[in-house]
Write a protein that binds this DNA or RNA. Sequence first.
DNA 1: TATACAGTGTGATCTGCGTCACATCTCCCT
DNA 2: AGGGAGATGTGACGCAGATCACACTGTATA
Lengths: 241, 241
Amino acid sequence: MAYNFEIIEDCLKCTFREHRLFCDLPGEAVTKLQSIKATSVYPKGAMLCLEGQAPRGVYVLCTGRAKLSTTSSEGKTIILRIAEPGEVLGLTAALSNTPYEATVETLELSQTNFIPQTDFIRFLQEYPDVGMRVAQQLTHNCKCAYTEIRSLGLSNSVPEKIAKLLLNWAEHPLDSPNRKNSSEIAIRVTLTQEEIAQFAGTSRETVSRVLGDFKKKGWLRIKGATWSILNKQALEELVTT
Amino acid sequence: MAYNFEIIEDCLKCTFREHRLFCDLPGEAVTKLQSIKATSVYPKGAMLCLEGQAPRGVYVLCTGRAKLSTTSSEGKTIILRIAEPGEVLGLTAALSNTPYEATVETLELSQTNFIPQTDFIRFLQEYPDVGMRVAQQLTHNCKCAYTEIRSLGLSNSVPEKIAKLLLNWAEHPLDSPNRKNSSEIAIRVTLTQEEIAQFAGTSRETVSRVLGDFKKKGWLRIKGATWSILNKQALEELVTT
DNA sequence: TATACAGTGTGATCTGCGTCACATCTCCCT
DNA sequence: AGGGAGATGTGACGCAGATCACACTGTATA
């Protein structure tokens, strides 16, 4: 077993299954899914889809997280969202048979189940339940996109956008060992400042300055990939949307 | 008949039906749709949904166009997209049973078919074909949102964003009477400069200046609601995405 | 132990465009 | 016709943040 990483080949035995929107299907459907999927494991930094490519199929992200981004012809990149385990990626492209809208890059060691486009469409038509799950995933994509639009279009300043991001991430905090410090929220951030800049639609230098400012004000502590929000309220007051 | 406007009460007799993604369903489904829908006609400027409201159901936009927008607590507004006839509005909210993501305002005299949420969900479960259509509409929403994100996040300047908008609109040109002037593309623009500013995430004054500049350069002619793109190539050269 | 490279911190400079302030201009409405 | 409101044009000003330039850090590679 490469990577010292447990591969889950059998969906029926997957312990996450019932928590996963797209996998928590009736047994018969999962058996079918099982027969058309191909499991792979990718290291950090692997590209699952490239923006503009013809769709080959969809990826169910079993474990790990992935970054969806789009790039201008001038090389400027913007991050659309970070996909969490359980999401189905490449749906829009596969359903409408148009090129992938975004580039998908794994942020960590990840397992995926790939389903070829034609098998997926057939699967979708055979099992009505699947349609509902697909709709839910698409709904989620739309909501994320709208959040991003609000962030890009309605914010007054970069500090506000970054505060928004931090607060957003703070909604899935780490189980901090010292939960007693109730005011402190620990989160795990594996993005570089460059990537944060792409998320907020700004420049890397500005991100550095803003984070430095937050630290100086005692609102934030950064220790490696573990960031602690020390003053949530102050960040919230920065946000106007 | 108020408004001097023909109301299409009977979906089966609707001449647009077969061109409409959501209405071009098997006869049985349309009959069912017919029984759960309520037809209304709204004047220009009517609010169909308000952002943040609990979902009541979905609206099929039979005729007319509508503006989807979202507003910050400070009153800054951004337009998400313009919905065309045939679109289903309020889908995301109805499917996920979360508040409407956007405010929907008619841009012209419009007819809609409203379907209450519970009826809609049941309809969706009964007719698998409907699921496919719903997925297509959601896919369309996502694509529009991504386009907007690219416009807001990847553009280098406001002139570029406005050029993008114009070129976008130019994809659905008017059947101009003088088509012989092949280089000239006529489009109908009913948005105010204020609304264009909201679309491009900029200020009204800047829109005025940029449009003035395009006119001065001979790239654009504006006569009331009819705009003519005189130099498409020049606009395209402004666009980097 | 050196070397390389990705990530980060920070100053100096310059500019696009947001904002305020006002002057038209174009439609309604009575 | 006339007046009022909404839409548009245009000048002046200031500043947030992009950009460039470089120093510093940490951690993989040879």
